[in-house]
Amino acid sequence: MTDFEPRIVAFLCNWCTYTASDLAGTSRIQYPPNVRIIRLMCSGQLDPIYVAKAVLEGADGVLIGGCHPGDCHYQSGNYKARRRVAIIHQVLEQLGFDPDRVWLRWISASEGQYFADTVTEMVAALKEKGPSPFRRQWSV
């Protein structure tokens, strides 16, 4: 399992976590190349179907990045996202899928280092877990 490289699909809020990822780049803060970023205007823009799609298509992890509680650029999108993630976790867990492959993290625009740390941490955690059971699964 040592050569297993996890695939993470990240849905990042434009105003915070995406900007943090930019900042990590600008500051040359290095993090593992395992994440593919989809920019949302707000974590509240995350349709749960996107997460379901990523999971069933075999993403080893899904990272959702939003603004810290109280800091949402659109007032409350992050709280709504948090509810949705809770629903996603419950559904996945009931279906026998490890919900801890779907991470929600509050990462502000200035937390480039924290973004990089989060990706690093997530990659390590996913390496521990091994590949998603849906990886290369043709019959979903």
């Binding site: 179907i49 799609k53 999971v55 069933l56 559904v91 290369r136 699964q137 979903v140």
Partner: peptide, 21 residues
């Protein structure tokens, strides 16, 4: 990408999405 794809596609996605919704 996956070697093959069950058709019609998105069977499980349909059910899981319905659960999420």
């Amino acid at each position: 990408r996956k070697g093959g794809v069950r058709l019609p596609s998105d069977t499980l996605l349909f059910h899981v999405t319905r659960m999420l919704h």
